[in-house]
Design a protein around this nucleic acid. Structure first.
Lengths: 218, 218
DNA sequence: GCTATACTGTGAACGTCTTCACACTGTGCT
DNA sequence: AGCACAGTGTGAAGACGTTCACAGTATAGC
């Protein structure tokens, strides 16, 4: 099994793609590994390694921006627009909806579910909100393979199970729980509390270091 | 420099803490490494390794829930409540504000900044919104060390620089850009697009595998 | 055409994080 | 008291990801 694309590699490719899209929009035609590296916040070696994965070849003048973008898109984008389901249209769900509206045309949040009568039936950012009781039928019926969970922690596991049995194989999870799912399902946890805690923790640590209070283990 | 706490270790400790908090609330007094491992979605070895970092000792009956929770909190929580600033009170900023309201008492988003007159002067979830022109003064004045960036991509770098020069050393960044910051500043990128792309990518990949279409490299 | 130059592609070294495996310690049972 | 057992603490091994360093290759200049 050669060339398995790791989690981190996919994340970096996604960043390269963003950078390349901008460069391409600016009519820049070629890019060197160290340019990409600087823009993406990684080393040039790392970039070249990653680009090996997409089988993109460069020359002694760098890479052709359009070619490279095409190669990455070919690898990462679905062959045709992929539908994504959103479960939970509260604060985070709504924010996510508006964030993704029109951002990635190949990844469309085409349906949302909730159990709050106040949102059921409404259309937010072009996305209809259905009752969560319709979830299994709609997701399975439309062959939806990716979903976003933005429900409270205590409801997340049940939602995940419903999604998985309806055919979902990739989940982006905002609920602060570790979902239990079969290994055949990919779960990307977006742990907002954890992320903020990390930022706050390292902020304290680095502030201390600056004050010359070294000698601590951490 | 022994025992530097890695990024991943902190993230896992944050999860253990959440799990332990629940157990403690449920009056559970002891926990074994494999229980914690199952709840946190990691291996038992990993749990024991991580717990070495917090200098928590267990017995042949596992760990004392309260002790363990205390040890993790002592390591991760600030000695006194730590203020956090939010920049950008749009969709995501607002969602973040409501998400963290009351969730982590030791990490308080006490001030928000925006340049939209519609939100300036208002108070959302107990957090006053000030004009972004006040940022430097307020952040420096209150000695705020951690901040959340939830502004559009093209404004993020400028905001980051302002925050850093006002004394911020830890940033949670929602903007889809790689921020350039001195090494003395910790940046936690929350890349929503990247996360969704990963979930969608692996969803496709795994769906294919299920259909017996093996033999592909990826 | 030939040389100097610039960048890629990649084997190998390196470092880090994770898992293994087992010695050690304390508990409960007889 | 002594033995069997359960679970931790940790050195060592292993897996994985990143960086190094240089051979290879194409371009540009003379």
């Amino acid at each position: 099994m050669p060339n398995t694309l790791s989690d981190n590699a996919i994340a970096r490719l996604s960043v390269y793609r963003r950078v390349l899209t901008e460069m391409h929009r600016d009519s820049r035609t070629s890019v060197r590994s160290d340019d990409l590296a600087a823009a993406a916040g990684v080393t040039a070696s790392q970039v070249r390694r990653d680009l090996m994965l997409v089988r993109a070849l460069g020359t002694n003048k760098g890479y052709d921006t359009a070619d490279l973008l095409g190669a990455i898109e070919k690898l990462m984008d679905p062959p045709e627009p992929q539908e994504v389901a959103l479960v939970g249209v509260g604060n985070i769900g709504t924010a996510v909806l508006s964030y993704f509206a029109g951002r990635r045309p190949m990844l469309d949040i085409t349906v949302a579910f909730d159990n709050d009568p106040a949102v059921i039936g409404r259309t937010l950012h072009g996305c209809p909100c259905l009752p969560v009781t319709d979830l299994a039928e709609v997701v399975a019926g439309r062959n939806i393979r990716a979903a976003i969970i933005a429900v409270p922690a205590d409801a997340a596991q049940k939602v995940a199970e419903a999604l998985v049995s309806a055919g979902v194989r990739g989940i982006m999870n905002f609920a602060p729980v570790r979902l239990r799912a079969p290994r055949s399902v990919y779960v990307e946890n977006v742990d907002l509390t954890g992320s903020l805690e990390k930022a706050a923790f390292f902020a304290r640590q680095r502030s201390q270091k600056e004050q010359g209070q070294t000698g601590y283990a951490y």
